[in-house]
Structure formats: C-alpha cells, structure tokens
Computed example of a mutant assay.
Amino acid sequence: MVTAILNPLVQEVLDLIGIFAFALSGALLAVRKRFDVVGIAVLAEVTALGGGVFRDLVIGAVPPVAFTDLSYFTTPLVAAVVVFFWHPRLARIRRFVLFFDAIGLGVFCVAGSIKALNFGMHPLAAIALGAATAIGGGAIRDVLAGEIPALLHPESEIYAVPALLGSGLVALLAVLGALTPITSAFAALLAVVVRLLALRYGWRAPLARGGSSL
C-alpha cells in the first residue's frame, strides 16, 4: 500500500485554500448570474465542498469532513460575504472566476489524491479521485448556474487534464517516497499553470472526427 505521509495540518491547510478559492469562483459566478445573497452562498458552498464530499463518500471517510469540521463549512460563507460586499466590476468578473477556479483545481487535485492514498487507495484510483475532487464542485456549480460544465463543453479549454497531471504527479511522488509539502505545492502549481496556459492559448481536447454528422 502506498501512503502519502503529510502532516495533518498541511492536509487541512491545502483543503481550506482550495475551499476558499473554489468558493470565490462559485460566488463570483453567482454575481455574474445576478443571484441574490442566498444564491451566492449556495453556489459558494457547493462549488467548494462538492468534490470533497464525493471523494470522502467513495473512500469511506464518513461522515464527510465537510460536515464534521466547522471550518470547512464556514470558509465558503466567508468567501461569499467577501464577494457580496466587494467584487470586481461586472466586465471583469469572468476573468476572476476562471483564475480562482484554476487555483482551486490545482490545490484540490493534490489534496484529494493525498487523502485517497492515505485511505489505502491504489495510486491509479487516487489519481482519479484527486481529479474528481478538483472538478466535481465546479461541475455542480455550472449545472446549478445553468451552464454546460467546463468538463463537458466542447468549446472549453482543457479542464480535467490539468487536474489529472497534478494528481498523477502526487501519486508518482508518493510511490517514489518523495512526497513532501514542497513537492506537493509543485504538483498543485503544475495543475494551476497548465490550466491558466490552456485559458490563455485556447488549448482544447480533440474531438471525434466526423462526430457532427452522426
């Protein structure tokens, strides 16, 4: 069994950073959609916690930490309040949504993979669960906001690939016994940078040839 030995405090800090970043992206999207304060709070919560709850249910970490650690539940509310009272001008909101979403993606793919490894999951399963942790909340956010999830949108820049790269690097480092807070941060940075580069240069996953004629 491969384990990812990190200080529990480091694990929690990673989780809370990802939660806050994703909550900001959810709340900012709610503002762009003209949701009221309740809608902003709901979108912040589900974006921040959706992927982690799914991961915890799969690995058997029940009840999910989102419902046992008050800081996990209140952090998105803090982000929602920040966005409600202070947000960029409307024309700039989409850029901020994508930026914070990229940060959350990078941090969550690492934190999710580490937790899965620590619960005895095979490295390949840990990679999948790390990616699911990273993209799950964003997918729920987009569905509730009436948008096609970035994961599935044919015109969207690559979304799952950066999460898989970050999760894959975590699993490889764990197998090699080289996973540390520094290398974990590098894995998260890799995912963030790839996602931001994809947004900057329009990198997209290939489509099936001739699919439009079916």
Score class of each variant (00 low, 15 high):
Ala30His: 12
Ile40Leu: 13
Gly52Ala: 05
Thr180Tyr: 11
Ile114Arg: 06
Phe85Gln: 01
Ala128Cys: 09
Ala187Trp: 06
Ile19Asp: 09
Ala126Cys: 08
Ala185Val: 13
Val37His: 04
Leu77Cys: 02
His122Leu: 10
Thr74Gln: 01
Asp36Glu: 11
Ser213Gln: 04
Gly136Met: 07
Trp86Ile: 11
Ile93Ala: 10
Leu105Gln: 07
Ala185Arg: 10
Thr3Val: 15
Arg94Asn: 05
Ala174Trp: 09
Thr68Asp: 12
Ala191Thr: 08
Val82Pro: 03
Ala23Pro: 15
Ile103Met: 13
Phe100Glu: 04
Leu151Ser: 04
Leu197Thr: 15
Ala30Asp: 00
Ala163Asn: 09
Gly26Gln: 01
Ser25Lys: 12
Ile140Tyr: 07
Val175Met: 14
Gly136Ile: 14
Leu214His: 11
Val192Asp: 03
Ile17His: 06
Ala174Glu: 01
Trp86Thr: 13
Val97Gln: 11
Ile40Pro: 14
Leu197Ile: 15
Val161Trp: 01
Gly104Ala: 03
Thr75Asp: 04
Val170Asn: 09
Phe186Met: 08
Val53Tyr: 00
Arg204Met: 08
Asp101Ser: 12
Ile140Ala: 09
Leu151Lys: 03
Val2His: 12
Ser184Ala: 15
Val2Leu: 04
Arg95Lys: 12
Ala163Thr: 14
Leu197Asp: 06
Phe20Tyr: 14
Val175Tyr: 13
Ile114Trp: 10
Val53Ser: 00
Arg141Pro: 14
Asp56His: 10
Leu196His: 12
Leu43Val: 14
Ala160Phe: 03
Gly120Ala: 06
Ile59Lys: 03
Leu124Lys: 07
Pro76Trp: 04
Leu169Cys: 06
Thr180Met: 02
Ala23Gly: 11
Gly146His: 08
Phe67Thr: 09
Val161Gly: 00
Leu144Ala: 02
Arg89Thr: 15
Phe20Asn: 02
Leu49Met: 05
Pro154Cys: 01
Arg34Gln: 14
Ala145Asp: 00
Val82Phe: 14
Val38Pro: 07
Val83His: 13
Leu165Ala: 10
Thr180Pro: 06
Ala145Lys: 13
Gly104Gln: 05
Asp69Phe: 05
Ile59Pro: 06
Val170Ala: 05
Leu117Ser: 11
Phe67Asp: 03
Gly138Arg: 02
Val192Gly: 03
Thr183Val: 10
Leu29Asp: 00
Leu14Pro: 06
Leu197Gly: 13
Ala198Met: 13
Gln11Val: 13
Ala188Thr: 07
Leu90His: 06
Leu98Ile: 12
Leu16Tyr: 12
Ala139Lys: 04
Pro181Val: 11
Arg200Met: 01
Glu45Thr: 15
Thr75Glu: 05
Val42Arg: 06
Ala145Met: 08
Ile114His: 08
Val82Ile: 15
Glu45Val: 15
Ser113Lys: 06
Ala134Arg: 00
Val170Trp: 07
Ala185Gly: 15
Leu16Cys: 01
Ala187Asn: 01
Ile114Cys: 05
Val10Glu: 07
Arg141Asn: 04
Leu14Gly: 07
Ala27Ser: 12
Tyr72Asn: 10
Leu144Ser: 02
Arg95His: 07
Phe108Ile: 10
Ser113Ile: 07
Ala171Glu: 05
Val31Gln: 09
Val83Pro: 13
Val2Ala: 01
Leu43Asp: 01
Leu169Phe: 07
Leu6His: 08
Pro162Phe: 07
Asp142Pro: 15
Ile158Thr: 12
